[in-house]
């Protein structure tokens, strides 16, 4: 987020606007915010008096109307509490300030991105070196070079985070299924990359896929030995990082832009959001009303014999 803010005074403008802790609305200046808070959140619903703070309203209600204030009116569900003493922008807890700031920034860039997608215009200040849009295509040479680096690192026993692991460059066509992978697939995920020696030959001679068992896989299904068809485009893209790399290679070969990291994560998030929207109903009978259910209970049942 730090680097994102660079060179965008307009987001600063937005961030500089005073906003209301209780309802997240932002205002032109502090005076407006305070008058908003007095009218919306600190107004006595008995006599209409506008108090300066929630605490003030509480005391007022208590003394004048003999009532107790339990929550702030018109506030967001998690901001109704009376514990925080808010006046204008004063008193907002630091983490809430941060949250608000992050949300503003996120929204701002989302809006900017949406605009960019809609208009096709480059962002102000990002006209030329826009790296987000750029398709990263690695040439065979660079790939090979990265593989060398990777191997050297492996040899030194360094473990590499899967995201950074260079895709092995050996072209899939040259890859012959290794029986050793059976052994791997039968094992639970390695917490760390296995020592190269376990392959039975020097790591440098290992043609490909050293990263297949890198730590990203715990809990995920192990990559099965896929024989000759693992190179086929129809092969299911696995979730394991090793498969991501396979895919990356294939994509690179085909000249396709590598899938954006985090896309899968986005999908997950979306799925979770959908699930979040699932709500539980306290009463969900589509035909029979609660009254009918109650009427059927022995406690309430009407016996006409007795009535007659």
């Amino acid at each position: 987020m730090g680097k994102k803010r660079r060179g965008h005074p307009d987001v600063e403008d937005i961030l500089g606007r005073p906003w209301c802790y209780y309802c997240e609305r932002d205002f032109e200046d502090l005076k407006l915010l305070i008058s908003h808070q007095k009218a919306k959140h600190f107004k006595c619903d008995r006599c209409g008096r506008r108090l300066n703070t929630a605490g003030g309203l509480s005391v007022h209600l208590n003394q004048v109307h003999k009532e107790n204030l339990s929550q702030v009116e018109n506030a967001l569900p998690n901001r109704q509490g009376l514990e925080v003493e808010i006046f204008g922008m004063e008193g907002i807890p630091a983490e809430i300030l941060d949250q608000h700031r992050n949300r503003i920034i996120q929204n701002f860039y989302q809006a900017q991105e949406d605009r960019r997608v809609a208009t096709g215009n480059p962002l102000p200040g990002q006209a030329s070196n826009n790296s987000r849009k750029k398709v990263k295509v690695e040439t065979t040479d660079t790939l090979k070079q990265r593989l060398e680096e990777f191997r050297a690192q492996r040899k030194n026993g360094g473990s590499i985070a899967p995201a950074e692991a260079a895709p092995p460059a050996a072209s899939p066509a040259s890859f012959t299924p290794q029986p050793q992978y059976d052994q791997h697939s039968a094992q639970p995920a390695y917490p760390q990359a296995p020592p190269a020696a376990s392959y039975g030959y020097p790591a440098s001679a290992l043609p490909a896929r050293p990263s297949a068992n890198l730590p990203a896989a715990p809990g995920l299904p192990q990559r099965p030995t896929q024989g000759g068809n693992w190179n086929s485009p129809g092969a299911a893209p696995g979730a394991a990082s090793g498969d991501d790399i396979d895919q990356l290679i294939r994509m690179a070969e085909a000249g396709i832009k590598p899938p954006q990291k985090g896309e899968a994560g986005d999908d997950d998030k979306k799925g979770k959001k959908d699930k979040d929207k699932k709500s539980r109903m306290m009463y969900d009978d589509a035909e029979i009303s609660p009254e009918e259910r109650m009427a059927a209970l022995p406690r309430y049942v009407f016996a006409p014999e007795i009535a007659a």
Binding site: P77, S279, R280, M281, P290
Partner: peptide, 15 residues
């Protein structure tokens, strides 16, 4: 007349 569920997963919907 809904309430966020206590476990943070979705809403409890009341009649």
């Amino acid at each position: 007349h809904r309430q966020a569920a206590a476990d943070g997963d979705g809403d409890i919907v009341y009649p």
